[in-house]
Design a protein around this nucleic acid. Structure first.
Lengths: 342, 342
DNA sequence: ATGAAAGCGCTAACAT
DNA sequence: ATGTTAGCGCTTTCAT
């Protein structure tokens, strides 16, 4: 059996409560006894039983994190940020993956909420009304989503798109394609509308080539539509899609950035390593994760359930080699190429 | 306050113990009362408090999973398999990421072991002696590692390599490069030695181009060495590295598979979507995750701490377009190409 | 088959 | 400043 608070109390010659205080609220005990207790605890290798503590404090010391797809590097970065912040605050985190399924999302949220003090719901796909309504037993912080009445951490997607458009416009592009992500993604919506506004403001023609799964294959599938669109530049919902796009453009023999410039979003690690390296709107993933944890913990600290803090983090365009000066015409299109798989 | 067993007991007009039995060991109570209790529980939305239950049973209902790097799609697949199996058995899982750091690994294992019934340590990088020695409070199952005295789930890496070599040999390749993964990776060691044996047996010359981080950039870095090696085919430690390789080969203007054939390992989703699609040794990731959970749970069930079950899963070569007939000579090498970044 | 009672390890009043 | 006591919600003897 593991060593309990009682063993420590006996070893130190004090009562259980003193041990409890010496360990949790050191200020409340005499320095001498405190040290004696701490020494005994250390010597015996005492580790408080979290279940027992939780039973009385009503806190589990656990956080939940729900993401649409762990295999998307964007989310694994967020996970790492959350993990780090949680560990620093002596909390553990349950991670769940919804496989992009909005229904699973709410179910998981309900299930998790029994076992954690609070949950971070990252890039939820469920509709606003559901998110506003879910009755759960613990705190909830949204990430990459703004819903009235719910605290949340977001990034300035619209400004990222503005930067991207400004960059492409400066390079002479006048017709830009957009490969959208899931319709149910708030980030996609934000990016799409931000893009639209910026394009209008700069007199750029925007071609919406459709909604695609936010995965490599989404980009591959979109590639041919992008080529057919006649655009000289394309902005993808995220880097994973942009990389799929790069792959398909390569297969079709279209060279980047000579014939088409490509811009991604998120700045996942791999995007700096592709050929060519991907120009992308960088999102502070770790920081967003940390911010969400901080918000959750502060919510738990001052338990006035009414506050719904919001925090928006900046985005930053990273200019790399996948974007370049616009080609003078689109004469290259339609020329059969060696790499073509058709 | 949440609804407790006491509320259910009152509502059903029975004692707490009866409620407990009706819910946990339905066989022990009268069918009539059982239904009454279950109805009451359902009506009140009763959810047993896991902390309270854990306090008495000594089980938390939680599992731990430690992986080297969540952003590697291989591990996110494993995670998904583990999650699914755990959920099916009504367990939650704590996931931790070591960032490929062997020291963090053991620390995390110790920390986790206090809060879970058992832990799956996936692809550990720590040395055998440490793994054999760690004294922890809960069960441990290794994955992708075989250590005496520890239960584990592995895959037949050597056979996968044998299949790959046989495939390449049949295509006429006589000189094969190998891009190794981390020296501390057991899988790498298995793949390397399996490869060596198969190459010898088939009279193939094997060129070891060095050890690389198991990431996209590892493959990029290895690319030039592979080209310089004079090999007509290359086998990479895993798919992520192989994809980095593909990228670098493309940048250097070396065409795959015409000039060099490329084989990966793991069969991550993306590998079927690259250009060209990647021939790879498929590893049953989900199944391995499920198997590890099953092993862990069975270990927990019959708590005779002595048994150390081992399970090995098969691997399967997936032949795709990145491998082809060996070029007749290596005259292509050194020719400057448009794609070169040098 | 059911109930009463003890207690898992801990913290939080309440005493001293 | 420290000790005593009473539970947190549940399972599990032990009675009945």
């Amino acid at each position: 059996m593991a060593v309990t608070i009682r063993d420590v109390a006996e070893a130190a010659g004090v009562s259980q409560s003193t041990v409890s205080r010496a360990l949790s609220m050191p200020g409340l005990v005499n320095a001498a006894t405190r040290e004696r207790v701490q020494a005994a605890a250390r010597e015996l290798g005492y580790q408080p039983n979290r279940a027992a503590r939780g039973l009385i404090t009503g806190r589990t010391g656990n956080l939940g994190l729900i993401v649409p797809d762990l295999s998307n590097p964007f989310f694994s970065s967020v996970v790492k940020g959350v993990q780090a912040a949680a560990r620093a605050a002596d909390h553990s985190v349950f991670i769940a993956d919804t496989d992009e399924d909005a229904d699973v999302e709410v179910d998981l949220l309900r299930a998790l909420s029994k076992q954690v003090d609070g949950t971070i719901l990252c890039s939820p796909r469920a509709p606003d009304v559901e998110l506003a309504a879910v009755g759960i037993d613990s705190a909830l912080v949204l990430m990459n989503r703004r819903v009235d009445g719910r605290p949340g951490v977001t990034v300035d997607n619209a400004d990222g798109m503005r930067q991207a458009v400004a960059h492409l416009a400066a390079l002479g592009h006048r017709r830009i394609a957009f490969v959208a992500g899931p319709r149910t993604s708030w980030s996609n919506e934000q990016r799409e509308s931000g893009l639209q506004r910026s394009a209008e403001a700069s007199g750029i023609e925007l071609v919406h080539v459709g909604y695609f799964p936010p995965q490599f294959e989404g980009g591959v599938a979109a590639g041919d539509l992008v080529i057919a669109s006649g655009a000289t530049a394309v902005i993808a919902y995220n880097d994973v899609v942009a990389i799929g796009l790069l792959s398909r453009l390569g297969a079709r023999g279209v060279s980047v950035p000579e014939q088409i410039s490509v811009v991604g979003c998120d700045d996942i690690g791999m995007s700096a390593m592709t050929h060519p390296p991907l120009t992308t709107v960088s999102v502070p993933k770790h920081e967003a994760g940390r911010a969400a944890v901080a918000m959750l913990l502060s919510l738990l600290a001052d338990n006035d359930g009414a506050s719904t803090p919001q925090r928006e983090l900046p985005t930053q365009l990273m200019v790399r080699a996948s974007t370049g000066v616009a080609p003078e015409s689109d004469r290259f299109r339609g020329r059969p190429t060696k790499g073509s798989t058709q």
